[in-house]
């Protein structure tokens, strides 16, 4: 049992954090929003050059072949800085599909390009114009589609960083390159991976949202002192810190289980996502409150992060779906509950 990160994992994460700190600022995110182009092609190339996009891609495809715990740490930082580009999706969805299916790997020649992945848990395509190919996951089939032949309807998300397109197959083979059947286990695997990915984003967002609030309460003065010196404000933010703390280890265990193909990986992922949802809700609500009326403005950066949470709470497993899944699972496994089974 060694539940710690390796030095390499921390170094990689910290280096990436440094990059994000100067290259993914609220100003830059806002400028993407204003131009209606949240996907920044130049930044995508930088992420490729840094090895982020290929971090978990198998070495035989030119990737770094790193494990998903490392990926999880990277994605948590993508959440922290509200990176608009779907690098998290590339890592946890399309890279995973390429790594696990030789058929898909052969069809996706340019593995550094964004590949949109759809599933009933996340049915809309992100950044259609930036992808050459799409992978659509059915219940037990996977179809690979050429994006240029897809026509869809643009949808406006409450998070302007998400450029969404809804497409309906006009006929079943528009743009279709290939359909793979009997893929139930791979589809489930990707859905689980999506849960871990979205949980990691939420944990990162929650940390950022709390940091913004603590900084604001040090700065803002009322009654002649920083509002952060008032207990009512302290306790709100302390409560958020507690929720965030207790979402982390659950998340890392879920990433580890996914990486090691643990038979309980879906349960672990669902736990991680639910804890992350709780953390993000608490952090968002209390941090907004700590900002007072300023928090409710477009001008303050807080909402850039809060609205991202609204989306990632719902895609790749929402509360209702996850709770039902876990409850059914627990009823089945009742004899195997208790502390001695935590790490089976």
């Amino acid at each position: 049992m060694n539940f710690t990160f390796s030095e390499d994992q921390e170094i990689f994460r910290d280096a990436f954090k440094k990059y994000l700190e100067s290259n993914v600022t609220p100003e830059k995110i806002r400028s993407g929003w204003e131009d209606n182009m949240p996907f920044n092609q130049a930044r995508w190339h930088e992420l490729e050059e840094l090895g982020i996009l290929q971090s978990n891609l198998d070495e035989k495809y030119g990737g770094l072949g790193l494990d998903l715990v490392t990926s999880c740490l990277l994605v948590e930082e993508m959440g922290y800085y509200a990176l608009p580009e779907p690098a998290a999706e590339q890592i946890f969805l399309s890279n995973l599909l390429i790594n696990k299916s030789i058929d898909i790997a052969e069809l996706i020649e340019e593995k550094n390009q964004f590949i949109g992945v759809t599933h009933s848990l996340s049915p809309n395509i992100l950044f259609l114009d930036n992808s050459s190919k799409q992978i659509n996951l059915g219940e037990d089939s996977i179809s690979i589609v050429s994006s240029k032949d897809i026509n869809g309807k643009k949808l406006k998300s409450s998070d302007p960083s998400r450029d969404l397109t809804n497409f309906i197959f006009e006929n079943s083979d528009s743009g279709l390159l290939q359909t793979l059947n009997d893929q139930k286990s791979l589809v489930n695997n990707v859905a689980t991976s999506g849960m871990v990915m979205s949980a990691a984003i939420l944990v990162g967002l929650s940390r950022k949202i709390l940091d913004l609030a603590t900084a604001y309460t040090l700065d803002r003065k009322q009654f002649g002192k920083p509002i952060g010196s008032f207990q009512a404000v302290k306790h709100m933010l302390a409560q958020a810190a507690i929720e965030i703390e207790f979402s982390k280890a659950t998340l890392y265990r879920a990433a580890y289980s996914l990486d090691n193909d643990n038979p309980l990986q879906k349960l672990h992922a669902a736990q991680a996502k639910l804890q992350a949802i709780d953390a993000c809700e608490m952090a968002s609500r209390n941090s907004m409150q700590a900002h007072g009326a300023m928090g409710y403005t477009w001008e303050m950066d807080l909402h850039i992060f809060i609205r991202r949470g609204w989306s990632y709470k719902q895609v790749w497993g929402n509360k209702s779906l996850l709770e039902n899944y876990i409850m059914n699972q627990l009823e089945k496994d009742l004899p195997k509950l208790g502390s001695t089974y935590t790490f089976l």
Binding site: M1, N2, F3, T4, E245, F246, S247, K248, A249, T250, Y252, R253, Q271, L274, Q275, E323, I326, M327, L330, L337, S339, T342, F343
Partner: peptide, 25 residues
């Protein structure tokens, strides 16, 4: 009641995982 029962289990697990990570650290 169901959601509180579920939350209890989730949080007890989250506490355990956190403590194992803390102990490792």
């Amino acid at each position: 009641i169901e959601s509180k029962v579920l939350q209890s289990w989730l949080r007890a697990e989250a506490y355990a995982l956190n403590i194992y990570q803390t102990a490792s650290n």
